[in-house]
Amino acid sequence: MSDIVPELFTDEEKDILQEVMNIAFGQASADLAEVIDIFVILSVPEIHVLKGHQLPGYLCEELQSSGTVNIIEQGFLGKFSGQALLIFPTGAEKELLTLFNQDQELTTLDIDIDILEQETLVEVGNILIGACIGKIAELLSDVVTYDPPRLIAKDYCLEDCQQSPVPAESFAISIRTVFRFDQQNVEGYLFLITNQHSIDWLKKALSTFLESFE
């Protein structure tokens, strides 16, 4: 875990956070495989903590080679609250539609292919965000509710991104993971944008998590 915001977490807290994320994503993989009936692997998440205003530059650097992206946003509310941003490179929606529509159920509907791909992206995003956040919340004994997910940017060019999509003073916990479905690699980035209040709660929850093994 990098030290972009060094004062925020102690080394031990960072280690616990990383392990909680590892477990959450591992369990999410297993449950997702059952829920969507597709073999899923979520790679070990790489965790970074940064300030809201650093996000555009960070995204730009991280996703350099990918060109344009689609961004799905979803608010979540619990003791740990914030927004989840799920970012897929443009083109992933086509692969996701193929994967999630193997029975051709959706393509028989009389809908424009663009809308179908877009809505699939939002639906898949909802499941992936729900799986990851749900597991993190469960491990830390929290219950969260969610707003409807929205596609906030379509074919968005990160290099044009001058303004941060989140408040400058907020914190972003960047969780970089690769979603691998069956044989296909779909790389996705999940960011949890949160506030000081939730970070304080998170620090307590992390220490409670570790104490629970005593």
Partner: peptide, 26 residues
């Protein structure tokens, strides 16, 4: 491991693991 999906369990069993414990352990 936290990822206890069927395919993972089958694979480690085939490689000769005795047993699998789900993360977090207790």
């Amino acid at each position: 491991t936290a990822d206890v999906q069927e395919k993972v369990l089958q694979r480690v069993a085939a490689l000769g693991a005795l047993h699998t414990v789900k993360k977090p352990p207790s």
